[in-house]
Design a protein around this nucleic acid. Sequence first.
DNA 1: AAGCCGGGGGG
DNA 2: CCCCCAGGCTT
Length: 352
Amino acid sequence: MPDNAPRAIAAPLLHWYDAHARVLPWRAAPGANAPDPYRVWLSEVMLQQTQVASVIPYFETFTTRWPSFAALAAADDADVMAAWAGLGYYARARNLLACAREVAALGRLPETEAELLKLRGIGAYTGAAIAAIAFGQRAVVVDANVERVVTRLFALAEPLPGARPRIRALTDTITPDARAGDFAQAMMDLGSGICTARAPRCLLCPLRPDCDGFATGAPEAFPVKAKKAPKPQRYGTMFWVRRGVEVLLVRRPDKGLLGGMRALPTGPWSDAPPGLADAPVAGDWQLLADTVSHGFTHFTLDVTLATVTIPEHSDPAHFGADGEWWPVDAIESAGLPTVFAKAARVFGRVSC
DNA sequence: AAGCCGGGGGG
DNA sequence: CCCCCAGGCTT
């Protein structure tokens, strides 16, 4: 039985945070005024399931180009989607725009957790994080770092995801009334740098005297997680339609994988290589010897690459409004998701 | 409650 | 090669 009595975590943790907080572009300078709610919101959405180092360059690009809710709300959808390319989980970019427009209509970002939760793309974690970090309210902020730190602090053996309600309750017992935003960020800094998933650095940890997991001698055993199913293998073909100095791009449907993103034409993925089925035009297709592999969250994709050149002045009406001819030399600026960017690099080598 | 949705870092 | 990550939405 873990000892679930409240314990004094906040004081030593905040003391440690005051000396060791990471310097991050969305954090206010030490001693400065509260951080800009727009920057807090943008960073929290970008940080969903995404590590700090990956987010920073995107955060700089977005805040330079769209420095406020109003600026982002007025942006073209295609520009925002292209700027998000490579960061992943593209529903976040669609929700980001929808949320920016909601906030612009409201006139400001709501300050309470309950109001924040009504906005697109803001769930339990993000709503609590914004309320605490941007507006100084007490909120129970639970992300993957907090789950790891808390299950270790209390040596909680119940496996995820079933343990989530218990973890939230335990986090509530250690969350202070004052400096809740700093407390949340301190827990995340601790989880990121000290209480890490593989090899926690307990000798550097300010919470070691309070940690049941350390006392067990195997803190890395927490959190306990359910086994995951093996990833299926799937196959597809990407089509490189060359017309003069341009190549055909399409826009993927809003729903589903890579939704709303610019892309090379493909058919649906399948359980066996589909070859030239679903080619966007008839022609003398050539298959490349190189293929592209890419891992997604829930399957692995192997892609065959096919090329064709069509007459310079033809314009197959087949593609409708979703077709776009893009200069091959500028393909890097198209904002392609990574799996298509990989393929485009291979095509570019061969097709030039 | 379970499935869907990217990509890169690190052991 | 594997597991992991400043989760949210849909069904």
